[in-house]
Write a protein that binds this DNA or RNA. Sequence first.
RNA 1: GGCGGGGUAGCUCAGUUGGUGAGAGCGCAGGAUUCAUAACCCUGAGGUCGGCGGUUCAAAUCCGCCCCCCGCUACCA
Length: 568
Amino acid sequence: MARILITSALPYINGIKHLGNLVGSMLPADVYARFQRQRGNDVLYICATDEHGTPAELAARDARQTVQQYCAEQYEIQAGAGEAFGLSFDHFGRSSNPPNHRLTQHFAAVLEDRGLIEERVDKQIYSIDDQRFLPDRYVEGICPHCEYEKARGDQCDNCGRLIDPIELKEPYSKISGSRNVEVRETRHLYLLQAQMQDRIARWVESKTEWPQLTKSIAKKWLKEGLRDRSITRDLVWGIPVAKDGAKRPGFENKVFYVWFDAPIEYIGATEEWALANNENWERWWRTDKGAADVKYVQVMGKDNVAFHTVSFPATILGSEEPWKTVDALKSLNWLTWYGGKFSTSENRGIFMDQALEILPPDYWRWHLMANAPESDDASFTLEHFASVVNKDLADVLGNFVNRITRFCNARFGDAVPEAGDYGEAEQNLITELDKRMADYAGYLEEMEFRKAFAELRAIWVAGNEYLQIAAPWTSIKTDEARAAASVRCALNLIVLFAALSRPVIPFTADKMFAIFGLDPVEASRWPTRAASALSRFKGGEAFTLPKVLFAKIEDEQVDEWRKRFGAE
RNA sequence: GGCGGGGUAGCUCAGUUGGUGAGAGCGCAGGAUUCAUAACCCUGAGGUCGGCGGUUCAAAUCCGCCCCCCGCUACCA
Protein backbone atom coordinates (compact mmCIF):
# COMPACT_ATOMS: atom_id res chain seq x y z
CA MET A 1 0.00 0.00 0.00
CA ALA A 2 1.56 3.24 -1.13
CA ARG A 3 1.30 6.43 0.86
CA ILE A 4 0.38 9.41 -1.27
CA LEU A 5 0.25 13.03 -0.14
CA ILE A 6 -1.71 15.25 -2.50
CA THR A 7 -2.03 19.03 -2.38
CA SER A 8 -3.81 21.30 -4.79
CA ALA A 9 -2.79 24.94 -5.11
CA LEU A 10 -4.54 26.97 -2.45
CA PRO A 11 -7.52 28.98 -3.72
CA TYR A 12 -7.23 32.63 -2.83
CA ILE A 13 -9.77 33.90 -0.34
CA ASN A 14 -11.22 36.84 -2.28
CA GLY A 15 -14.43 35.30 -3.50
CA ILE A 16 -15.73 32.02 -4.78
CA LYS A 17 -13.68 30.38 -7.49
CA HIS A 18 -14.75 29.95 -11.11
CA LEU A 19 -14.67 26.82 -13.22
CA GLY A 20 -11.17 27.65 -14.45
CA ASN A 21 -9.79 27.70 -10.93
CA LEU A 22 -11.63 24.49 -10.17
CA VAL A 23 -10.23 22.53 -13.09
CA GLY A 24 -6.83 24.13 -12.69
CA SER A 25 -6.00 22.50 -9.39
CA MET A 26 -8.68 21.24 -7.04
CA LEU A 27 -10.70 19.02 -9.34
CA PRO A 28 -7.82 17.07 -10.95
CA ALA A 29 -6.28 16.57 -7.52
CA ASP A 30 -9.60 15.27 -6.24
CA VAL A 31 -9.97 12.83 -9.13
CA TYR A 32 -6.45 11.55 -8.54
CA ALA A 33 -7.04 11.26 -4.78
CA ARG A 34 -10.26 9.34 -5.30
CA PHE A 35 -8.59 7.01 -7.78
CA GLN A 36 -5.74 6.26 -5.40
CA ARG A 37 -8.08 5.67 -2.49
CA GLN A 38 -10.13 3.23 -4.55
CA ARG A 39 -6.94 1.38 -5.33
CA GLY A 40 -6.45 0.91 -1.61
CA ASN A 41 -3.60 3.35 -1.19
CA ASP A 42 -3.16 5.49 1.90
CA VAL A 43 -4.05 8.95 0.62
CA LEU A 44 -3.94 12.31 2.34
CA TYR A 45 -5.46 15.08 0.23
CA ILE A 46 -4.87 18.54 1.67
CA CYS A 47 -6.05 21.96 0.60
CA ALA A 48 -6.78 25.30 2.26
CA THR A 49 -7.71 28.88 1.59
CA ASP A 50 -4.87 31.31 0.96
CA GLU A 51 -5.98 34.29 3.02
CA HIS A 52 -3.27 36.89 3.37
CA GLY A 53 -2.22 39.77 1.18
CA THR A 54 -3.42 43.06 -0.21
CA PRO A 55 -6.37 41.74 -2.26
CA ALA A 56 -7.93 40.20 0.84
CA GLU A 57 -7.63 43.46 2.75
CA LEU A 58 -9.15 45.42 -0.10
CA ALA A 59 -11.96 42.94 -0.68
CA ALA A 60 -12.81 43.07 3.02
CA ARG A 61 -12.88 46.83 2.89
CA ASP A 62 -15.18 46.78 -0.14
CA ALA A 63 -17.44 44.38 1.73
CA ARG A 64 -17.38 46.70 4.76
CA GLN A 65 -16.10 43.95 6.97
CA THR A 66 -13.02 43.42 9.04
CA VAL A 67 -10.59 41.25 7.19
CA GLN A 68 -11.04 38.57 9.86
CA GLN A 69 -14.80 38.53 9.36
CA TYR A 70 -14.42 38.61 5.62
CA CYS A 71 -12.01 35.69 5.51
CA ALA A 72 -14.04 33.64 7.96
CA GLU A 73 -17.13 34.13 5.82
CA GLN A 74 -15.40 33.47 2.53
CA TYR A 75 -13.73 30.40 3.98
CA GLU A 76 -17.12 28.92 4.81
CA ILE A 77 -18.37 29.72 1.32
CA GLN A 78 -15.41 28.09 -0.38
CA ALA A 79 -15.44 25.09 1.93
CA GLY A 80 -19.15 24.65 1.24
CA ALA A 81 -18.73 24.94 -2.51
CA GLY A 82 -15.89 22.44 -2.45
CA GLU A 83 -17.95 19.97 -0.50
CA ALA A 84 -20.92 20.45 -2.82
CA PHE A 85 -18.65 19.69 -5.77
CA GLY A 86 -17.53 16.50 -4.09
CA LEU A 87 -13.96 17.62 -3.51
CA SER A 88 -12.77 14.95 -1.14
CA PHE A 89 -10.25 16.89 0.92
CA ASP A 90 -9.07 15.06 3.98
CA HIS A 91 -8.71 18.56 5.32
CA PHE A 92 -9.51 22.00 3.97
CA GLY A 93 -7.63 24.44 6.14
CA ARG A 94 -6.90 28.14 6.36
CA SER A 95 -3.52 29.77 5.93
CA SER A 96 -4.48 32.14 8.75
CA ASN A 97 -4.80 29.31 11.27
CA PRO A 98 -2.31 28.84 14.14
CA PRO A 99 -0.28 25.95 12.69
CA ASN A 100 0.71 28.07 9.71
CA HIS A 101 1.69 30.94 11.99
CA ARG A 102 3.89 28.61 14.00
CA LEU A 103 5.47 26.96 10.96
CA THR A 104 6.06 30.23 9.13
CA GLN A 105 7.85 31.65 12.16
CA HIS A 106 9.82 28.44 12.36
CA PHE A 107 10.99 28.58 8.76
CA ALA A 108 11.88 32.25 9.00
CA ALA A 109 13.91 31.63 12.13
CA VAL A 110 15.71 28.62 10.73
CA LEU A 111 16.48 30.38 7.45
CA GLU A 112 17.90 33.29 9.40
CA ASP A 113 20.03 30.91 11.44
CA ARG A 114 21.35 29.52 8.16
CA GLY A 115 22.36 33.00 7.08
CA LEU A 116 19.76 33.12 4.32
CA ILE A 117 17.77 36.11 5.55
CA GLU A 118 18.85 39.70 5.90
CA GLU A 119 17.21 43.07 6.42
CA ARG A 120 17.27 45.55 3.58
CA VAL A 121 15.74 48.95 3.07
CA ASP A 122 13.57 49.56 0.00
CA LYS A 123 11.94 52.60 -1.48
CA GLN A 124 8.25 52.17 -2.19
CA ILE A 125 5.26 54.27 -3.04
CA TYR A 126 3.16 55.13 -0.01
CA SER A 127 -0.39 56.35 -0.42
CA ILE A 128 -1.19 58.82 2.29
CA ASP A 129 -4.94 58.74 1.66
CA ASP A 130 -5.07 54.95 1.55
CA GLN A 131 -2.72 54.77 4.53
CA ARG A 132 -0.76 51.95 2.98
CA PHE A 133 2.24 51.12 0.88
CA LEU A 134 1.15 50.24 -2.62
CA PRO A 135 2.20 46.98 -4.24
CA ASP A 136 3.65 47.60 -7.69
CA ARG A 137 0.50 46.73 -9.55
CA TYR A 138 -1.59 49.04 -7.42
CA VAL A 139 0.35 52.08 -8.61
CA GLU A 140 -0.29 53.66 -11.97
CA GLY A 141 1.22 56.69 -13.64
CA ILE A 142 2.97 57.94 -16.73
CA CYS A 143 5.50 55.57 -18.21
CA PRO A 144 9.03 57.01 -17.89
CA HIS A 145 9.98 55.42 -21.21
CA CYS A 146 7.09 56.02 -23.59
CA GLU A 147 4.92 58.58 -21.76
CA TYR A 148 1.94 56.19 -21.83
CA GLU A 149 -0.48 57.59 -19.25
CA LYS A 150 -1.80 54.46 -17.62
CA ALA A 151 1.34 52.43 -17.04
CA ARG A 152 1.15 49.98 -14.16
CA GLY A 153 3.82 50.07 -11.50
CA ASP A 154 5.38 46.83 -12.60
CA GLN A 155 5.12 47.05 -16.36
CA CYS A 156 3.92 49.40 -19.05
CA ASP A 157 1.11 47.90 -21.10
CA ASN A 158 1.98 50.18 -23.98
CA CYS A 159 5.72 49.71 -24.47
CA GLY A 160 6.01 46.50 -22.50
CA ARG A 161 9.03 47.59 -20.51
CA LEU A 162 9.47 46.63 -16.91
CA ILE A 163 9.22 49.53 -14.53
CA ASP A 164 10.17 50.30 -10.99
CA PRO A 165 7.12 52.08 -9.57
CA ILE A 166 9.16 54.88 -8.08
CA GLU A 167 10.16 55.82 -11.64
CA LEU A 168 6.55 56.51 -12.68
CA LYS A 169 5.73 60.11 -13.42
CA GLU A 170 2.68 61.50 -11.65
CA PRO A 171 1.95 58.26 -9.79
CA TYR A 172 -1.45 57.64 -8.28
CA SER A 173 -3.09 54.93 -6.23
CA LYS A 174 -5.08 52.44 -8.21
CA ILE A 175 -7.00 51.68 -5.05
CA SER A 176 -8.43 55.12 -4.40
CA GLY A 177 -7.22 57.11 -7.38
CA SER A 178 -5.49 59.47 -5.00
CA ARG A 179 -2.41 61.33 -6.23
CA ASN A 180 -1.44 62.07 -2.67
CA VAL A 181 1.42 59.61 -2.73
CA GLU A 182 5.10 59.74 -1.91
CA VAL A 183 8.20 57.58 -1.92
CA ARG A 184 9.03 56.23 1.52
CA GLU A 185 11.73 53.98 2.78
CA THR A 186 10.66 50.71 4.31
CA ARG A 187 12.64 47.89 5.84
CA HIS A 188 12.05 44.30 4.78
CA LEU A 189 13.42 40.82 5.23
CA TYR A 190 15.03 39.32 2.15
CA LEU A 191 15.38 35.64 1.44
CA LEU A 192 18.80 35.22 -0.14
CA GLN A 193 17.77 32.89 -2.92
CA ALA A 194 20.80 33.69 -5.03
CA GLN A 195 22.93 31.74 -2.56
CA MET A 196 20.76 28.70 -3.11
CA GLN A 197 21.01 28.69 -6.90
CA ASP A 198 23.18 25.57 -7.16
CA ARG A 199 21.34 23.65 -4.48
CA ILE A 200 17.98 24.23 -6.16
CA ALA A 201 19.37 23.51 -9.59
CA ARG A 202 20.65 20.14 -8.39
CA TRP A 203 17.31 19.41 -6.78
CA VAL A 204 15.42 20.29 -9.98
CA GLU A 205 17.78 18.07 -11.97
CA SER A 206 16.98 15.18 -9.66
CA LYS A 207 13.26 15.44 -10.44
CA THR A 208 13.25 13.15 -13.43
CA GLU A 209 9.50 12.48 -13.44
CA TRP A 210 8.39 16.09 -13.82
CA PRO A 211 6.61 16.81 -17.09
CA GLN A 212 8.27 19.03 -19.62
CA LEU A 213 6.18 22.13 -18.98
CA THR A 214 7.05 21.99 -15.30
CA LYS A 215 10.73 21.44 -15.82
CA SER A 216 11.14 24.07 -18.51
CA ILE A 217 9.59 26.72 -16.29
CA ALA A 218 11.87 25.82 -13.38
CA LYS A 219 14.94 25.79 -15.58
CA LYS A 220 14.07 29.10 -17.11
CA TRP A 221 14.08 30.75 -13.69
CA LEU A 222 17.32 29.07 -12.77
CA LYS A 223 18.89 30.07 -16.04
CA GLU A 224 18.07 33.70 -15.42
CA GLY A 225 19.56 33.35 -11.98
CA LEU A 226 17.64 33.31 -8.72
CA ARG A 227 17.17 36.71 -7.17
CA ASP A 228 16.88 37.56 -3.53
CA ARG A 229 13.26 38.16 -2.65
CA SER A 230 11.62 40.29 -0.06
CA ILE A 231 9.44 38.09 2.13
CA THR A 232 7.72 40.72 4.26
CA ARG A 233 5.14 43.40 3.51
CA ASP A 234 3.71 46.53 5.12
CA LEU A 235 0.27 45.14 5.87
CA VAL A 236 -1.77 44.43 8.96
CA TRP A 237 -3.37 41.16 7.83
CA GLY A 238 -0.94 38.29 7.84
CA ILE A 239 1.59 36.53 9.96
CA PRO A 240 3.46 39.04 12.13
CA VAL A 241 7.21 39.13 11.85
CA ALA A 242 8.62 37.78 15.09
CA LYS A 243 12.07 37.38 16.50
CA ASP A 244 12.81 35.29 19.56
CA GLY A 245 9.16 35.06 20.46
CA ALA A 246 8.41 38.79 20.32
CA LYS A 247 7.70 41.24 17.53
CA ARG A 248 10.82 41.89 15.55
CA PRO A 249 12.11 45.41 16.20
CA GLY A 250 11.39 47.62 13.24
CA PHE A 251 8.79 45.17 11.89
CA GLU A 252 5.95 45.91 14.30
CA ASN A 253 3.59 46.87 11.48
CA LYS A 254 4.69 44.28 8.98
CA VAL A 255 3.74 40.75 8.14
CA PHE A 256 5.22 37.97 6.06
CA TYR A 257 4.52 38.14 2.36
CA VAL A 258 1.63 35.93 1.36
CA TRP A 259 3.80 33.99 -1.07
CA PHE A 260 6.13 33.08 1.76
CA ASP A 261 3.47 31.71 4.09
CA ALA A 262 0.97 30.27 1.59
CA PRO A 263 2.91 27.16 0.52
CA ILE A 264 3.89 26.53 4.13
CA GLU A 265 0.17 26.11 4.71
CA TYR A 266 0.38 22.78 2.88
CA ILE A 267 2.19 21.63 5.98
CA GLY A 268 0.10 23.78 8.30
CA ALA A 269 -3.15 22.35 6.96
CA THR A 270 -1.77 18.87 7.51
CA GLU A 271 -1.13 19.81 11.12
CA GLU A 272 -4.70 21.15 11.32
CA TRP A 273 -5.88 17.78 10.03
CA ALA A 274 -3.78 15.96 12.60
CA LEU A 275 -5.09 18.10 15.44
CA ALA A 276 -8.67 17.53 14.38
CA ASN A 277 -8.27 13.79 13.90
CA ASN A 278 -5.76 12.86 16.58
CA GLU A 279 -3.26 12.03 13.87
CA ASN A 280 0.43 12.56 13.32
CA TRP A 281 1.29 15.12 10.65
CA GLU A 282 5.05 14.62 10.74
CA ARG A 283 4.81 11.14 9.26
CA TRP A 284 3.60 12.84 6.08
CA TRP A 285 6.13 15.66 6.01
CA ARG A 286 9.31 14.77 7.85
CA THR A 287 11.47 12.19 6.18
CA ASP A 288 13.12 11.54 9.55
CA LYS A 289 9.74 10.82 11.11
CA GLY A 290 8.13 8.39 8.73
CA ALA A 291 7.61 10.37 5.52
CA ALA A 292 10.50 8.80 3.62
CA ASP A 293 8.15 6.46 1.72
CA VAL A 294 5.54 9.14 0.94
CA LYS A 295 4.92 10.09 -2.67
CA TYR A 296 4.06 13.80 -2.72
CA VAL A 297 1.94 15.04 -5.62
CA GLN A 298 1.17 18.70 -6.26
CA VAL A 299 -1.47 19.97 -8.69
CA MET A 300 -1.64 23.59 -9.85
CA GLY A 301 -2.22 26.01 -12.69
CA LYS A 302 0.78 26.92 -14.80
CA ASP A 303 1.08 30.34 -13.18
CA ASN A 304 1.99 28.62 -9.94
CA VAL A 305 4.75 26.41 -11.25
CA ALA A 306 7.67 28.74 -10.62
CA PHE A 307 6.68 29.22 -7.02
CA HIS A 308 6.42 25.48 -6.45
CA THR A 309 9.57 24.48 -8.29
CA VAL A 310 11.85 27.28 -7.12
CA SER A 311 10.49 29.62 -4.43
CA PHE A 312 8.91 27.16 -2.02
CA PRO A 313 11.81 24.71 -2.45
CA ALA A 314 14.13 27.56 -1.51
CA THR A 315 12.30 27.81 1.80
CA ILE A 316 12.27 24.05 2.35
CA LEU A 317 15.78 23.24 1.18
CA GLY A 318 17.21 26.35 2.77
CA SER A 319 16.11 25.11 6.18
CA GLU A 320 18.41 22.10 5.79
CA GLU A 321 15.79 20.17 7.70
CA PRO A 322 14.47 16.82 6.47
CA TRP A 323 11.21 18.03 4.92
CA LYS A 324 9.41 16.06 2.27
CA THR A 325 9.62 17.74 -1.14
CA VAL A 326 7.38 17.33 -4.16
CA ASP A 327 7.75 14.22 -6.31
CA ALA A 328 5.15 14.54 -9.05
CA LEU A 329 3.91 17.93 -10.18
CA LYS A 330 0.89 18.22 -12.44
CA SER A 331 0.38 21.63 -13.98
CA LEU A 332 -2.58 22.68 -16.07
CA ASN A 333 -3.17 25.49 -18.50
CA TRP A 334 -6.08 27.91 -18.37
CA LEU A 335 -9.69 27.30 -19.03
CA THR A 336 -11.06 30.29 -20.90
CA TRP A 337 -14.61 31.53 -21.23
CA TYR A 338 -15.37 31.57 -24.95
CA GLY A 339 -11.69 32.20 -25.59
CA GLY A 340 -11.47 35.13 -23.17
CA LYS A 341 -10.84 35.47 -19.49
CA PHE A 342 -13.24 34.52 -16.77
CA SER A 343 -14.02 37.78 -15.03
CA THR A 344 -15.86 38.43 -11.80
CA SER A 345 -16.14 42.16 -12.26
CA GLU A 346 -17.47 41.94 -15.80
CA ASN A 347 -19.83 39.07 -15.06
CA ARG A 348 -18.25 36.73 -17.55
CA GLY A 349 -18.02 33.07 -16.79
CA ILE A 350 -19.49 30.62 -14.31
CA PHE A 351 -18.49 30.36 -10.69
CA MET A 352 -18.72 27.27 -8.54
CA ASP A 353 -21.87 28.27 -6.69
CA GLN A 354 -23.64 29.33 -9.88
CA ALA A 355 -22.70 26.10 -11.61
CA LEU A 356 -24.44 24.07 -8.94
CA GLU A 357 -27.54 26.23 -9.14
CA ILE A 358 -27.89 25.02 -12.71
CA LEU A 359 -26.83 21.39 -12.70
CA PRO A 360 -25.49 18.74 -10.31
CA PRO A 361 -21.72 18.50 -9.79
CA ASP A 362 -21.07 15.42 -11.92
CA TYR A 363 -22.15 17.20 -15.10
CA TRP A 364 -19.42 19.78 -14.52
CA ARG A 365 -16.86 17.34 -13.19
CA TRP A 366 -17.14 15.14 -16.26
CA HIS A 367 -16.95 17.91 -18.82
CA LEU A 368 -14.13 19.74 -17.09
CA MET A 369 -11.97 16.66 -16.63
CA ALA A 370 -12.68 15.04 -19.99
CA ASN A 371 -11.69 18.34 -21.62
CA ALA A 372 -9.11 19.53 -19.11
CA PRO A 373 -6.67 22.21 -20.37
CA GLU A 374 -3.65 19.94 -20.37
CA SER A 375 -1.70 20.71 -23.52
CA ASP A 376 -2.85 24.27 -24.00
CA ASP A 377 -5.47 26.72 -22.81
CA ALA A 378 -8.91 25.29 -23.48
CA SER A 379 -12.06 27.20 -24.23
CA PHE A 380 -15.19 26.56 -22.21
CA THR A 381 -18.40 27.15 -24.10
CA LEU A 382 -21.90 26.30 -23.00
CA GLU A 383 -22.58 24.76 -26.41
CA HIS A 384 -19.65 22.39 -26.10
CA PHE A 385 -20.56 21.64 -22.50
CA ALA A 386 -24.13 20.75 -23.46
CA SER A 387 -22.96 18.60 -26.34
CA VAL A 388 -20.50 16.66 -24.18
CA VAL A 389 -22.94 16.17 -21.33
CA ASN A 390 -25.75 15.05 -23.60
CA LYS A 391 -23.65 12.66 -25.61
CA ASP A 392 -21.29 11.16 -23.06
CA LEU A 393 -23.34 11.19 -19.90
CA ALA A 394 -26.96 11.02 -21.06
CA ASP A 395 -26.70 9.00 -24.27
CA VAL A 396 -23.76 6.71 -23.68
CA LEU A 397 -23.67 6.08 -19.92
CA GLY A 398 -27.12 7.10 -18.68
CA ASN A 399 -28.98 5.42 -21.47
CA PHE A 400 -27.01 2.23 -21.02
CA VAL A 401 -28.10 1.96 -17.41
CA ASN A 402 -31.64 2.90 -18.27
CA ARG A 403 -32.12 0.52 -21.20
CA ILE A 404 -30.86 -2.60 -19.50
CA THR A 405 -32.54 -2.08 -16.13
CA ARG A 406 -35.85 -1.38 -17.82
CA PHE A 407 -35.53 -4.35 -20.12
CA CYS A 408 -34.69 -6.63 -17.22
CA ASN A 409 -37.52 -5.25 -15.16
CA ALA A 410 -40.00 -5.83 -17.96
CA ARG A 411 -38.92 -9.34 -18.87
CA PHE A 412 -37.23 -10.85 -15.82
CA GLY A 413 -38.44 -8.77 -12.87
CA ASP A 414 -36.62 -6.95 -10.09
CA ALA A 415 -33.71 -9.32 -9.66
CA VAL A 416 -30.65 -10.29 -11.63
CA PRO A 417 -31.59 -13.27 -13.82
CA GLU A 418 -29.77 -16.47 -13.04
CA ALA A 419 -30.16 -18.68 -16.10
CA GLY A 420 -27.65 -19.24 -18.86
CA ASP A 421 -23.88 -19.04 -19.14
CA TYR A 422 -21.51 -16.50 -20.60
CA GLY A 423 -20.34 -17.29 -24.11
CA GLU A 424 -18.30 -15.83 -26.91
CA ALA A 425 -19.83 -12.36 -26.83
CA GLU A 426 -19.02 -12.02 -23.13
CA GLN A 427 -15.52 -13.35 -23.62
CA ASN A 428 -14.85 -10.80 -26.36
CA LEU A 429 -16.19 -8.08 -24.11
CA ILE A 430 -13.92 -9.19 -21.27
CA THR A 431 -10.90 -9.16 -23.53
CA GLU A 432 -11.63 -5.62 -24.68
CA LEU A 433 -12.39 -4.39 -21.17
CA ASP A 434 -9.20 -5.82 -19.70
CA LYS A 435 -7.16 -3.90 -22.24
CA ARG A 436 -9.06 -0.67 -21.82
CA MET A 437 -9.17 -0.87 -18.02
CA ALA A 438 -5.39 -1.26 -17.90
CA ASP A 439 -4.91 1.71 -20.23
CA TYR A 440 -7.40 3.78 -18.24
CA ALA A 441 -5.70 3.10 -14.91
CA GLY A 442 -2.34 3.85 -16.50
CA TYR A 443 -3.52 7.24 -17.73
CA LEU A 444 -4.99 8.10 -14.33
CA GLU A 445 -1.77 7.10 -12.65
CA GLU A 446 0.08 9.48 -14.98
CA MET A 447 -2.58 12.14 -14.48
CA GLU A 448 -3.24 12.24 -18.23
CA PHE A 449 -6.85 13.14 -17.71
CA ARG A 450 -8.12 13.74 -21.23
CA LYS A 451 -6.73 10.43 -22.36
CA ALA A 452 -8.03 8.69 -19.26
CA PHE A 453 -11.57 9.85 -19.76
CA ALA A 454 -11.56 9.17 -23.48
CA GLU A 455 -10.74 5.62 -22.43
CA LEU A 456 -13.48 5.55 -19.81
CA ARG A 457 -15.94 6.72 -22.41
CA ALA A 458 -14.77 3.95 -24.72
CA ILE A 459 -15.45 1.49 -21.89
CA TRP A 460 -19.02 2.77 -21.62
CA VAL A 461 -19.38 2.49 -25.40
CA ALA A 462 -18.15 -1.11 -25.21
CA GLY A 463 -21.16 -1.79 -22.99
CA ASN A 464 -23.54 -0.49 -25.61
CA GLU A 465 -21.76 -2.40 -28.36
CA TYR A 466 -22.05 -5.55 -26.30
CA LEU A 467 -25.77 -5.07 -25.82
CA GLN A 468 -26.17 -4.50 -29.52
CA ILE A 469 -24.42 -7.77 -30.28
CA ALA A 470 -26.04 -9.79 -27.48
CA ALA A 471 -29.46 -8.28 -28.27
CA PRO A 472 -31.37 -9.98 -25.45
CA TRP A 473 -34.60 -8.45 -26.76
CA THR A 474 -34.14 -10.71 -29.78
CA SER A 475 -32.71 -13.81 -28.14
CA ILE A 476 -35.42 -13.89 -25.50
CA LYS A 477 -37.84 -14.96 -28.21
CA THR A 478 -35.97 -18.18 -28.85
CA ASP A 479 -33.52 -18.75 -26.01
CA GLU A 480 -34.51 -17.27 -22.68
CA ALA A 481 -31.40 -18.57 -20.90
CA ARG A 482 -29.17 -16.83 -23.41
CA ALA A 483 -31.08 -13.58 -22.88
CA ALA A 484 -30.82 -14.00 -19.12
CA ALA A 485 -27.05 -14.39 -19.28
CA SER A 486 -26.78 -11.27 -21.45
CA VAL A 487 -28.88 -9.24 -19.05
CA ARG A 488 -26.88 -10.51 -16.08
CA CYS A 489 -23.67 -9.49 -17.81
CA ALA A 490 -25.05 -6.04 -18.58
CA LEU A 491 -26.23 -5.52 -15.02
CA ASN A 492 -22.77 -6.46 -13.82
CA LEU A 493 -21.41 -3.89 -16.21
CA ILE A 494 -23.34 -1.18 -14.39
CA VAL A 495 -21.42 -1.94 -11.21
CA LEU A 496 -18.12 -2.11 -13.07
CA PHE A 497 -18.84 1.21 -14.79
CA ALA A 498 -19.74 2.77 -11.45
CA ALA A 499 -16.46 1.70 -9.86
CA LEU A 500 -14.38 2.90 -12.81
CA SER A 501 -16.29 6.16 -13.08
CA ARG A 502 -16.31 7.06 -9.42
CA PRO A 503 -13.14 9.17 -9.40
CA VAL A 504 -14.73 11.62 -11.82
CA ILE A 505 -18.48 11.30 -11.26
CA PRO A 506 -18.75 10.13 -7.64
CA PHE A 507 -22.35 11.14 -7.05
CA THR A 508 -23.61 9.23 -10.07
CA ALA A 509 -21.41 6.25 -9.29
CA ASP A 510 -23.02 5.99 -5.88
CA LYS A 511 -26.48 6.17 -7.47
CA MET A 512 -25.47 3.26 -9.67
CA PHE A 513 -24.34 1.23 -6.68
CA ALA A 514 -27.60 2.12 -4.94
CA ILE A 515 -29.57 0.42 -7.72
CA PHE A 516 -28.32 -2.84 -6.25
CA GLY A 517 -28.10 -1.71 -2.65
CA LEU A 518 -24.31 -2.01 -2.68
CA ASP A 519 -22.03 -0.32 -0.20
CA PRO A 520 -20.12 2.30 -2.25
CA VAL A 521 -16.83 1.83 -0.47
CA GLU A 522 -16.77 -1.93 -0.88
CA ALA A 523 -18.18 -1.89 -4.40
CA SER A 524 -15.77 0.75 -5.64
CA ARG A 525 -12.58 -1.09 -4.78
CA TRP A 526 -10.60 -0.69 -7.93
CA PRO A 527 -11.43 -3.43 -10.46
CA THR A 528 -8.48 -4.81 -12.38
CA ARG A 529 -10.00 -7.88 -14.02
CA ALA A 530 -13.14 -7.68 -16.08
CA ALA A 531 -13.93 -11.37 -15.69
CA SER A 532 -14.21 -11.19 -11.94
CA ALA A 533 -16.09 -7.89 -12.09
CA LEU A 534 -18.67 -9.41 -14.44
CA SER A 535 -19.23 -12.39 -12.18
CA ARG A 536 -20.16 -10.36 -9.11
CA PHE A 537 -23.88 -11.02 -9.60
CA LYS A 538 -24.62 -14.71 -10.07
CA GLY A 539 -28.38 -14.25 -10.20
CA GLY A 540 -31.13 -13.53 -7.72
CA GLU A 541 -29.75 -10.18 -6.47
CA ALA A 542 -32.56 -7.67 -6.17
CA PHE A 543 -32.41 -4.23 -7.71
CA THR A 544 -34.49 -1.08 -7.83
CA LEU A 545 -35.43 0.43 -11.16
CA PRO A 546 -33.44 3.68 -11.21
CA LYS A 547 -34.48 7.09 -12.39
CA VAL A 548 -32.76 8.50 -15.44
CA LEU A 549 -29.19 9.35 -14.35
CA PHE A 550 -28.64 12.42 -16.52
CA ALA A 551 -31.21 14.78 -17.96
CA LYS A 552 -30.32 16.22 -21.32
CA ILE A 553 -29.53 19.90 -21.63
CA GLU A 554 -32.01 21.65 -23.93
CA ASP A 555 -31.12 24.40 -26.40
CA GLU A 556 -33.38 26.81 -24.51
CA GLN A 557 -31.35 26.27 -21.36
CA VAL A 558 -28.15 27.04 -23.22
CA ASP A 559 -29.69 30.26 -24.54
CA GLU A 560 -30.78 31.27 -21.06
CA TRP A 561 -27.36 30.56 -19.55
CA ARG A 562 -25.60 32.43 -22.32
CA LYS A 563 -27.51 35.54 -21.33
CA ARG A 564 -27.06 35.01 -17.62
CA PHE A 565 -23.32 34.40 -17.73
CA GLY A 566 -22.29 36.83 -20.42
CA ALA A 567 -21.36 34.53 -23.29
CA GLU A 568 -20.27 36.38 -26.39
C1' G B 1 11.50 42.78 -25.82
C1' G B 2 12.83 37.80 -23.31
C1' C B 3 11.14 32.87 -22.21
C1' G B 4 7.50 28.97 -22.67
C1' G B 5 3.10 26.58 -24.88
C1' G B 6 0.09 26.17 -29.22
C1' G B 7 -1.48 26.55 -34.69
C1' U B 8 -3.64 18.73 -37.59
C1' A B 9 -10.99 17.23 -40.64
C1' G B 10 -16.87 22.37 -39.78
C1' C B 11 -15.89 22.04 -33.89
C1' U B 12 -12.83 20.06 -29.52
C1' C B 13 -8.39 17.50 -29.62
C1' A B 14 -4.71 12.79 -30.20
C1' G B 15 -0.35 11.75 -33.04
C1' U B 16 7.26 14.01 -33.13
C1' U B 17 13.82 8.38 -31.47
C1' G B 18 11.12 10.83 -39.67
C1' G B 19 8.65 5.52 -43.06
C1' U B 20 3.02 0.53 -42.80
C1' G B 21 -2.83 4.20 -47.27
C1' A B 22 -2.92 10.91 -41.34
C1' G B 23 -6.53 9.36 -36.21
C1' A B 24 -10.65 9.93 -32.03
C1' G B 25 -15.12 12.27 -30.15
C1' C B 26 -18.79 15.76 -31.66
C1' G B 27 -21.43 17.58 -35.96
C1' C B 28 -23.12 15.90 -40.95
C1' A B 29 -25.00 11.86 -44.57
C1' G B 30 -26.65 6.88 -45.26
C1' G B 31 -27.93 2.09 -43.13
C1' A B 32 -29.55 -1.26 -39.38
C1' U B 33 -32.47 -1.73 -34.97
C1' U B 34 -36.57 -1.01 -31.43
C1' C B 35 -34.53 -2.85 -24.95
C1' A B 36 -33.71 2.55 -24.07
C1' U B 37 -33.54 9.67 -22.49
C1' A B 38 -35.80 10.26 -31.26
C1' A B 39 -31.33 7.03 -27.46
C1' C B 40 -27.85 2.81 -28.99
C1' C B 41 -25.03 0.08 -33.09
C1' C B 42 -22.73 0.00 -38.19
C1' U B 43 -20.90 2.53 -42.61
C1' G B 44 -19.39 6.88 -45.10
C1' A B 45 -17.98 11.88 -46.74
C1' G B 46 -14.60 15.76 -44.91
C1' G B 47 -7.77 17.56 -43.95
C1' U B 48 -2.09 20.70 -49.68
C1' C B 49 -1.08 18.56 -40.79
C1' G B 50 -0.25 27.89 -40.12
C1' G B 51 3.11 29.79 -44.59
C1' C B 52 7.74 29.59 -47.43
C1' G B 53 12.43 27.32 -48.10
C1' G B 54 15.94 23.34 -46.80
C1' U B 55 17.98 18.29 -45.23
C1' U B 56 16.47 13.17 -46.76
C1' C B 57 15.10 7.59 -50.78
C1' A B 58 11.12 9.32 -47.26
C1' A B 59 8.80 15.13 -43.06
C1' A B 60 2.68 16.64 -39.44
C1' U B 61 7.42 14.82 -37.25
C1' C B 62 14.33 17.40 -38.24
C1' C B 63 16.68 22.54 -39.65
C1' G B 64 16.03 27.96 -41.11
C1' C B 65 12.96 32.20 -41.85
C1' C B 66 8.05 34.28 -41.42
C1' C B 67 2.70 34.83 -39.73
C1' C B 68 -1.12 34.15 -35.92
C1' C B 69 -3.15 32.81 -30.75
C1' C B 70 -2.18 32.15 -25.46
C1' G B 71 0.63 32.35 -20.91
C1' C B 72 4.69 33.90 -17.78
C1' U B 73 8.26 37.87 -16.95
C1' A B 74 9.80 37.37 -9.69
C1' C B 75 5.62 43.43 -5.38
C1' C B 76 -1.93 40.47 -7.92
C1' A B 77 -2.06 35.79 -5.97
